[in-house]
Design a protein around this nucleic acid. Sequence first.
DNA 1: GCTTATTAGTTGCTTATGCAATTATTGCGC
DNA 2: GCGCAATAATTGCATAAGCAACTAATAAGC
Lengths: 153, 153
Amino acid sequence: MDKLREQESIGRDISHLFRSIRNFMGRRLQPYGIGDAQFPFLMLLLHEDGISQERLATYLKCDRATSARSIARLEHAGYVRRLVDPEDRRAYKVFLTEQGQELGDVLWSVSKELNGILLEGFSDEEKLAFRKMIKRAGMNISKWEQIRKTADE
Amino acid sequence: MDKLREQESIGRDISHLFRSIRNFMGRRLQPYGIGDAQFPFLMLLLHEDGISQERLATYLKCDRATSARSIARLEHAGYVRRLVDPEDRRAYKVFLTEQGQELGDVLWSVSKELNGILLEGFSDEEKLAFRKMIKRAGMNISKWEQIRKTADE
DNA sequence: GCTTATTAGTTGCTTATGCAATTATTGCGC
DNA sequence: GCGCAATAATTGCATAAGCAACTAATAAGC
């Protein structure tokens, strides 16, 4: 397997990493009746309350449909409330409920725990470098997506 | 958003990166009638032919069910053939068909293209460091999964 | 002011993935 | 040799995610 392992792309390792992260988050959030996908939405709402599903989708770089379904699940679970925006009756304003705000501490601690696990043995410089490289790779491929989309038109 | 961005976990960036990679691979492989998930299976089979679904799952760090379904799709598309292992009639031996072997060049070129996009602007040292860190993080979280599994028993 | 384009949200379809339960086969203990 | 544990594969169920098509509301062009 050595020849393969040398030449293989990083895609597979990122895939493995991502699936493991989902698994971890799923297990940690299960007691609260939500899935791993709801985590980033809650984190964003903790920081900026009352924004639309569209803005949530944009910030989290996901599809509007994904945003809609994730918020719907959070609403059913009682963590958010949706109010029609009086300024634009197409859009909702998504607010955390009291229950949602109370979840904040748990979410931060789970987030820290995950970071601690992932970056165990990393020096501070390595942690920073790793974060930056992930962001750079993400920006690189975003650029490609942008080129593709404009080419489609 | 700055305060949030500083403190946020790397999980979100990895999620974005992973989804973008799936998107890219999905588009590149669509002309061949397969999805992004089939790519690592084909790559592994190009290197080691005639192994079982179980071994494929182990190498690719995924569930046996995922392996089974991915191989089934490859079989329907005509890229692999499954023969019952005469030494162990529970298991299959998965072989690439001629059509599957011919896909090799395409897969390598798609893989290289993805790497080129992701790592654009990275120096050789950075590329190597990035790969290593992704692997380290993956091993870190694998260790946690292992501890959890043994604790469940 | 009316038509058209854009935008926010929803829903159906498809793919991917993991877990649990089931079946079939192998192998171990005795 | 028999019964039971372990293993390979399959299937059902649940979650997640993107795309496309649709509705409803707003904005722009004229």
